[in-house]
Simulated assay, not measured.
Amino acid sequence: MQKKLVCCLSVIFLVFNSCSNEEYYHSENAILPKTLKTIYPTSPSENYDTNFIYDGNKIVSITNKNGKRDYKYDGSHIVKERVYSFYKGEETKSYETLYTYENDKLKTVAKFVNGTVIRYIYNYNNDGSITKETYDLEIDTWEETKRTGKDVITIIDGNIMKSEYNWEDGYDVISVVNYEYDTNKNAFKNIKGLNLLLDQYSFDYEINMSSNNNMSRYYVKNIQGPSSNIIFEPHAFRMEYKYNKKGYPIKKTTYDYYTERIIEIVEYMY
């Protein structure tokens, strides 16, 4: 009798523990940013709110005073994004982006802007890096021209750590961008499919929306060859965060790395 009671209690514990884990998983997935308040301390008239609408944990639209973005999914993948701008109360379509995938990884991106098409192809290398090729498509003839510039992206633990862009012929410049992150949860990590968009996704100053963690610093280094005569200004930012009890950011302050001037403040509402 005692053995039966122990077995029964063990089964109840396992069922309870399983349910608790499932509830926790779903509650974590339900944590999604509903509103972002962007604040400019030196230009308060430019402050604005950004509102997010979801279907479950799929993004449906993002809207603020600057414009609107609509999304379409195929299963768990974002396959289309339409961007609209607002001007004098009227909504105008700015561009449309189509995404395709291979083996659950981003493969191609086609961006339609003002009658032109820019296409990106992502190739996944054995060393873990990703090479991005860029093509210009002529709509009238459907002929493509490959740009000579090359972009190589390095991702570690779901975060873009480095982006190296070798400029096109005639410039003799390589731009290297290094990114640093904290260990806390990105506010957007539960939006389905967003993590697959790599470097293709940014929204205003939210440049790390597809990363697992929160960007704490990024800086740009331009390596110039003997034929380059471009003058570059130092370019680096650092970010400080405040978090809620679940480890999601509720406030981000972005500073110019060199002057310590506050660029902007973003407050997150879930």
Score class of each variant (00 low, 15 high):
Val11Gln: 07
Ile12Asp: 09
Phe16Glu: 00
Ser18Ala: 13
Cys19Leu: 14
Asn21Ala: 15
Asn21Phe: 09
Glu22Arg: 04
Glu22Ile: 04
Glu23Leu: 10
Tyr24Trp: 00
His26Trp: 10
His26Tyr: 12
His26Gly: 00
Ala30Leu: 04
Pro33Gln: 01
Lys34Gln: 14
Thr35Cys: 00
Leu36Ala: 07
Thr42Val: 14
Pro44Leu: 07
Pro44Asn: 05
Asn47Ser: 10
Tyr48Lys: 08
Asn51Ile: 11
Ile53Met: 10
Asn57Gln: 10
Val60Ala: 08
Ile62Ala: 08
Thr63Cys: 07
Asn66His: 09
Tyr71Pro: 08
Asp74Phe: 04
Ser76Trp: 00
His77Glu: 14
Glu81Phe: 00
Tyr87Lys: 11
Gly89Tyr: 06
Glu90Ser: 13
Glu90Met: 12
Tyr95Asp: 08
Thr97Ala: 14
Thr100His: 03
Leu106Gln: 03
Lys107Ser: 15
Lys107Pro: 08
Val113Ile: 13
Asn114Leu: 05
Gly115Asp: 10
Gly115Leu: 09
Val117Ala: 03
Ile118Gly: 04
Arg119Tyr: 04
Ile121Thr: 12
Ile121Ser: 09
Tyr122Asp: 09
Tyr122Asn: 12
Asn123Pro: 01
Asn126Cys: 01
Asp127Phe: 06
Gly128Tyr: 06
Glu133Cys: 06
Asp136Ala: 05
Trp142Asn: 11
Thr145Lys: 14
Lys146Gly: 03
Arg147Tyr: 13
Gly149Ile: 00
Ile156Met: 06
Ile156Tyr: 05
Ile156Asn: 11
Ile160Lys: 05
Lys162His: 03
Lys162Pro: 02
Ser163Cys: 11
Glu164Cys: 07
Asp169Ser: 13
Tyr171Pro: 03
Tyr171Met: 13
Asp172Ser: 13
Ser175Lys: 04
Val177Trp: 10
Asp182Pro: 03
Asn184Thr: 05
Asn184Leu: 06
Ala187Lys: 03
Phe188Asn: 01
Asn190Val: 09
Leu194Asn: 12
Asn195Thr: 11
Leu196Arg: 04
Leu197Pro: 13
Gln200Pro: 06
Tyr201Phe: 12
Ser202Pro: 01
Asp204Asn: 13
Tyr205Phe: 04
Ile207Thr: 15
Asn213Phe: 02
Ser216Gln: 07
Lys221Pro: 00
Lys221Gly: 02
Asn222Lys: 08
Asn222Leu: 05
Ile223Gly: 03
Gln224Gly: 00
Ser227Leu: 10
Ser227Tyr: 04
Asn229His: 13
Ile230Trp: 02
Glu233Asn: 14
His235Arg: 11
His235Pro: 02
Glu240Ser: 07
Glu240Cys: 03
Tyr241Leu: 08
Pro249Ser: 12
Thr254Leu: 11
Tyr257Val: 01
Thr259Pro: 12
Glu260Asn: 15
Arg261Ile: 12
Arg261Trp: 06
Val266Met: 09
Tyr268Gln: 13
Tyr268Leu: 06
Met269Gln: 01
